[in-house]
Amino acid sequence: MKTKRLVTNYSQRRTIHHSASYHDNLITYRNPWVVAWWTAALPGFGHLMLCKYITGFILFAWEVFVNVNAGINAAIVYSMIGDFEAAKEILDPNWLFFYAGVYVFAIWDSYRRTVDLNRLYVLAYRENSPLAPFKISSLEINYLNKRKPWVTVIFSAFAPGLGYLYINRLPSAFFTIIWWVIIVYFSRFNEAVLYTMIGDYSGAIAILDPQWLLFIPSLYVFSMFDSYSYTVELNKVFEKEQANYLQKFYQCNPSETLTNLNEF
């Protein structure tokens, strides 16, 4: 029986890109400190940057679950504005002690994996395994194309997740959209925006839940940054695939063509 493999030829061992009709997965060069920083902002983000989606989704859900139960975000806000009594009051030690171990592991793991993947990227890039430019399945279509990175940023700024839809990264898109709705709903962010816009600043403070509000900066900026950088990376994959194609099919005798040209 023929088994389905990522890379069918045994001489091909690594590839930089794998596409499905709903997603492009790829490895690329990353600065390990940037990846580690995003994990520190919200565990899970670093792994999402590395296209390790299952790890990323689980870590992110873990982070939200434990953080909310332990009251860590609210405690951060109270500590930073100097209200240490309120911070102690809101923290739940029963949940808090779960936090540190996984948090530090996630940062370390994303850093170390980035270093690994950077080295593997060099090997995979040089190996130059065939890349798939087009995928169609019964419900979706995906193709490599040149896309504009700043368009993704603008759409992500309107609503986190739209940038991912533009570059056809559906798991990221729905992950971001769903979490954005949950976090905005529980933080009462939209109502606070309304109060702020009509000038009732104390009304905004009263209604906001700091525990949920503190997830928003990281999620908002990360969705812009991540969709932007993958637009750039997918453009590079597109160019590489096209270059490979042209070399294979449109260079039947390149040196002779150039010599003919020379004779005229």
Binding site: A41, I76, V77, M80, I81, F189, A192, V193, Y195, T196, Y201, S202, A204, I205, L208, P210, L213, L214, I216, P217, S218, Y220, V221, F222
Partner: peptide, 21 residues
Amino acid sequence: GAIFMLLGTIYGYVLKLGPIL
């Protein structure tokens, strides 16, 4: 962007214009 947005949100609680702005 993420760091300063976070700081702005936190200190917005004690500053005049609130955490959103």
